[in-house]
Amino acid sequence: MELIVNGKKLDVREGGSITALLDELKINPLRVAVQLNLEIIKRERYGKTVLKAGDRLEIITFMAGGAE
């Protein structure tokens, strides 16, 4: 199914959770915040939140930088 992750189209397995997605993308769940369709998802719910086709995710972390 197709998701939109950080503004980019991504094809993933059907029925996967946020945990599965982070795992597939090799993203450490302890270093990110996740927003699913404008709602922030608490970390303890990553495993229980199943993604659907067309879901928009923002996976946020800390990057180098300051004033831009």
Partner: peptide
């Protein structure tokens, strides 16, 4: 140390 808050870079 200050850090910026940005989208994760999906390039593994």
């Amino acid at each position: 140390v200050t850090v910026a808050v940005r989208r994760v870079n999906l390039d593994r």
